[in-house]
Design a protein around this nucleic acid. Structure first.
Length: 573
DNA sequence: GCCGTTTTCGGCCCGACTGTTTTCAGTCG
């Protein structure tokens, strides 16, 4: 059984336990186990057979037993029985914002509601408002949330790049508000998750209440959801929800930390702080004995007070970052300035939007030492893939450009298509003439897992292939990743010294964070490429860096941080 | 259900906002 299926079942159990009214901590235990498995670099199947399940943080006797049953029989009695206690679909109700387990259960018990359509009807005929602790206003709020939920369904989360751009525009507008001092994205946006549900902004102001009033008047803001003296929730023009929280100036460090999360990270941080006699909140750190509150303007000082190294936002996921921070053993995460070159670009020789020389100029502007030209192979007719003849011509042009530009080395290359049968689109003797070969899948994405895995491994095993491009083929919000045995691909990459790409194109971010984490643990070499089709797109590198940091990458894990000579030496051929 | 500088039981992060209540439950992050 795949880890993703196991994660889904554990998460479902957590929801059902909440519905059942079981201890919230029991539910949380299942969630924690699910999150741990998400970051696991091994299959749960394997851990079961080796009796190593309890090495997973958050897995104790009870969950280990359930995982064993699940993996060996494909079935979990406990889960099936739990599911049978509720009308199927009741968890759908909880997807509506404002409906939690108590309300969902109330609706089901009192009115027999287990789907959104019946809920809507029950609100309209007044039944919901009559329930205990409900009222007309609550009922109407739920109705409003249902409408928003339907409108947004399917496109609820946006790529991190979309959210980041929107947040930057909004923050620019906010600089005009008097008295706002610090301002930063927080939440999943600051942690750089690949997709974002809503934007959290955290700031400080001389007079938060006045600043909130000014904020809700800004041109970007379309609809007010709720507001109080220190916070406001709004919908901005592109449909995204923004939650703003403003505090007094001296609390910025603690507030930024608090609202950056993740939830799991904060729970672990607070539990640990309590053992030290400290209580954490957005306002600072309170000594439990004296009741004295200390405030922190910087996050660094906030962590330091707890005896911890500064933990970068991207790895605050409750994995084992706090333990490592305690021992000053956190990785030194890669930064944008570490990147020395970009190895995946397209010019107007294939489907790029700019002449080759303009792309080179763009790379120079980034300050890169080297760049690889990787137009498409012939099979990709739709992208004007290069014929063998044109490959020869381009090779000549590249050697001319190398003579012309002394500040940057231009590698010849190609993004060669992996055909449905696993063969490459260009003969080996031609590939042998190129410095860098990226192999990627662009068609036949719906093959079964076995065929797809074989196909990709066959490309990865080719001695001329240096890099596997956008390995899983996902497009955020548009197309799921192909079905592939990623661990088998990892093994092949390791065996054949093939590099895996972290594609930084905002809609791709492929490999994703957890895969990057696993690949890195296995010692697989990675590169971060923008796949630029225009000189401006070299700026996509920041997204690749963000996702690589979420995968705990240091500069040494990423080959294109190497200076030119060392990078050359690291290539296969 | 997990876990241990409170170690095999008794804890488990903390606060804002809303709407319903006369002091708080539910939800969210």
């Amino acid at each position: 059984m795949k880890n993703t299926e196991i994660i889904e079942i554990l998460d479902n159990i957590a929801v059902l336990l909440e519905l059942k009214g079981e201890s919230i901590f029991k539910s949380r235990a299942y969630q924690k186990a699910a999150r741990s498995i998400e970051f696991l670099s091994e299959e749960v199947d394997k851990l079961v057979s080796e009796e190593r399940l309890k090495e997973i943080p958050g897995v104790g006797d009870a969950i280990a037993q359930k995982l064993t049953e699940l993996v060996s029989t494909g079935h979990l009695d406990y889960y099936e029985k739990l599911k049978a206690e509720f009308p199927p679909g009741i968890n759908i109700l909880m997807e509506v914002p404002g409906i939690g387990p108590r309300t969902a259960l109330l609706l089901t018990k009192e009115l027999g509601i287990a789907d959104i359509d019946s809920l809507e009807k029950a609100i309209e005929n007044g039944q919901v408002a009559e329930l205990p602790r409900m009222g007309e206003k609550t009922a109407q709020n739920i109705l409003r949330q249902i409408k928003a939920y339907r409108k947004k369904k399917g496109e609820q989360r946006v790529p991190v790049s979309t959210a980041l751009t929107a947040a930057e525009i909004l923050m620019e507008e906010m600089h005009a508000i008097a008295g706002i001092r610090h301002l930063s994205p927080a939440g999943s946006l600051r942690r750089f998750r690949d997709t974002i549900g809503d934007i959290d902004l955290i700031g400080t102001a001389d007079n938060p209440e006045e600043a909130i009033e000014a904020f809700i008047q800004l041109p970007s803001i379309n609809e007010l959801q709720e507001k109080g003296p220190t916070k406001a929730s709004v919908i901005i023009n592109n449909g995204l929800q923004v939650d703003l929280r403003l505090l007094s100036n001296d609390a910025f460090g603690s507030a930024l930390q608090y609202f950056t999360g993740s939830k799991q990270h904060n729970i672990e941080l607070r539990t640990r702080a309590a053992r030290l006699g400290l209580s954490l909140s957005e306002y600072g750190i309170t000594d439990i004995v004296t009741g004295q509150l200390e405030t922190y303007i910087s996050e660094e000082a906030f962590y330091k007070r707890q005896g911890l190294e500064y933990i970068p936002p991207e790895i605050r996921e409750g994995l084992h970052e706090i333990e490592l921070a305690e021992q000053s053993k956190l990785p030194h995460l890669i930064e944008l300035s570490d990147i020395k070159g970009d190895l995946h670009l397209h010019s107007d020789w294939s489907d790029g939007a700019a002449p080759l020389e303009e792309m080179i100029a763009g790379a120079l502007e980034q300050g890169y030492e080297y760049v690889a030209v990787t137009d498409h192979s012939p099979g990709l007719g739709i992208a004007h893939g290069l014929s063998i003849d044109r490959i020869q011509q381009q090779l000549q042009l590249i050697s001319e450009l190398n003579r012309k530009y002394s500040d940057i080395h231009i590698f010849s290359g190609m993004e060669v298509d992996i055909r449905a049968n696993g063969a490459l689109d260009v003969p080996d003797e031609v590939l042998a003439k190129l410095d860098i070969v990226i192999a990627s899948i662009h068609s036949g994405m719906n093959q079964g897992i076995d065929q797809m895995t074989k196909r990709v491994i066959s490309a990865v095993s080719n001695p001329h292939v240096d890099i596997l491009g956008h390995p899983t083929g996902r497009l955020l919000g548009e197309r799921e990743a192909v079905e592939i045995d990623i661990e088998a691909v990892f093994k092949a990459a390791l065996d054949h010294q093939t590099v895996l790409e972290i594609n930084a194109t905002p809609s791709r971010l492929d490999l994703k964070d957890t895969h990057i984490y696993q690949a890195r643990q296995l010692g697989i070499k990675l590169v971060i490429n923008t796949d630029s089709h225009h000189p401006e797109q070299f700026n996509f590198m920041r997204y690749g860096i963000g996702i690589a940091r979420r995968g705990w990458c240091e500069a040494r894990d990423i080959l294109n941080t190497l200076p030119l000579a060392k990078f050359k030496a690291s290539l296969k051929s």
